[in-house]
Amino acid sequence: MSKKVTTVKCPHCNKAVEWSEQSPFRPFCSKKCQMIDFGTWANEEKAIPGAPDMSDADGWSEDHTSV
């Protein structure tokens, strides 16, 4: 009985990548594609949507009572 091989597309270049121990950079096809993707996250070109961080905004406080 043969084992089915799972294949995914590299998120950067769309090359087919075998999802196994033989592909150390999975889901990326190579270290190059992995680092290009990392760079886009590090440069904040990609982001996970969420509420804006208001913790360092001028005059912001969780205490809404007047002083």
Score class of each variant (00 low, 15 high):
residue 53 D to M: 06
residue 27 P to G: 05
residue 61 S to E: 05
residue 62 E to K: 00
residue 46 K to F: 14
residue 63 D to F: 01
residue 63 D to C: 10
residue 45 E to M: 07
residue 40 T to S: 05
residue 17 V to Y: 04
residue 8 V to C: 06
residue 6 T to V: 15
residue 64 H to A: 09
residue 28 F to N: 03
residue 43 N to S: 10
residue 17 V to E: 00
residue 37 D to Y: 07
residue 24 P to N: 03
residue 42 A to F: 15
residue 54 M to L: 11
residue 40 T to L: 12
residue 26 R to P: 01
residue 18 E to V: 07
residue 18 E to C: 03
residue 59 G to H: 04
residue 8 V to A: 08
residue 6 T to K: 13
residue 22 Q to D: 09
residue 6 T to Q: 13
residue 65 T to I: 08
residue 43 N to E: 15
residue 11 P to L: 12
residue 15 K to A: 08
residue 39 G to L: 08
residue 33 C to K: 00
residue 49 P to H: 01
residue 13 C to R: 05
residue 49 P to L: 02
residue 33 C to Q: 12
residue 43 N to A: 15
residue 19 W to M: 12
residue 28 F to T: 00
residue 58 D to W: 02
residue 66 S to T: 06
residue 9 K to F: 12
residue 60 W to C: 07
residue 7 T to P: 00
residue 40 T to V: 13
residue 42 A to Q: 11
residue 35 M to N: 13
residue 49 P to F: 02
residue 8 V to I: 15
residue 2 S to P: 14
residue 36 I to R: 03
residue 61 S to M: 07
residue 2 S to Q: 14
residue 60 W to H: 12
residue 63 D to V: 09
residue 12 H to W: 03
residue 53 D to Y: 09
residue 32 K to L: 06
residue 23 S to D: 12
residue 57 A to I: 01
residue 13 C to I: 03
residue 6 T to R: 10
